[in-house]
Amino acid sequence: MLPSVVVASIWKFILNPDKGLPSFLSSFGIQGFDKALLGQESTALWTIAFIDNWHYWGFLATLLLVAMQGVPTELYEAARLDGANLWHQLMHVTIPAIRPTLIFMFLMTGIWSFLVFDYVWVLTQGGPAGSSEVLGTLVYKTAFTEFDAGYAAAQGVSMAIFASFLLGLFILMRKRGWEI
């Protein structure tokens, strides 16, 4: 595992339109990659979202693999005997069996989405034209660029309320009997 600043710096180099992967692909005559993905308002946030999610895909894939290996094979055999095809086995055997893991994965992804500050700051600092601005960078800029600590604190409390909503959703599902 690498620190997020190192990962973001590597991706910034990879996506550099003059020296990185787009330049390399363009040199082979592959068209359409000559764009600065981090320099356009329409693609900057999506590119950062991909990079942020990329860094923990291995962890989530491992969790999913372990959960799927824990599904008893007898359930699949019984489903096949009942005439279930692969789609029905997925929908009625696999997903219900790994539901606690899936919910945990979605919950962790939601929580990690509030911690995206480092990737946004290293890659674009909220630009271009504020298109990749997230709550974390907004709070940082309000506190340390505009020197308005009170308003930044209010923004931080708002972030905490949003995160508490996710936690409240988790608690509600536990109270309703979901195994998470």
Rank of each mutant, 00 (worst) to 15 (best):
P3V: 00
S4H: 02
V7A: 15
A8Y: 03
S9C: 05
I10M: 14
N16S: 11
N16W: 09
P17G: 06
P17M: 05
K19N: 08
P22D: 09
P22F: 10
S27W: 01
F28M: 15
G29W: 09
I30G: 04
Q31V: 11
Q31E: 14
Q31I: 06
G32Y: 07
G32I: 09
L37M: 14
L38N: 06
E41G: 11
T43E: 07
W46L: 15
I48L: 10
F50A: 14
F50V: 15
D52F: 07
N53G: 14
N53F: 09
W54L: 12
W54D: 01
H55E: 10
A61K: 00
L63K: 01
A67G: 11
M68K: 08
Q69K: 14
G70I: 08
L75W: 11
L75N: 03
Y76P: 06
A78E: 04
A78P: 00
A79P: 01
R80S: 13
G83H: 00
L86W: 08
W87L: 13
Q89V: 00
Q89S: 01
I95L: 15
I98Y: 03
I98D: 03
T101Q: 07
L102P: 11
F104S: 06
F106A: 10
M108C: 09
F117M: 00
D118W: 01
Y119E: 09
V122Y: 08
G126Q: 03
G127K: 02
A129E: 12
S132R: 00
E133K: 08
E133I: 01
L135F: 09
G136I: 04
T137M: 07
Y140R: 04
T142K: 12
A143N: 04
T145V: 12
E146C: 03
F147R: 06
F147H: 13
D148G: 00
D148R: 15
A149N: 10
A149S: 13
Y151F: 12
A152F: 14
A152D: 09
A153T: 15
M159E: 05
M159T: 03
I161R: 09
A163T: 14
S164P: 01
L169H: 05
L169C: 15
F170L: 15
I171N: 03
I171C: 04
L172Q: 14
M173S: 06
W178D: 04
E179G: 10
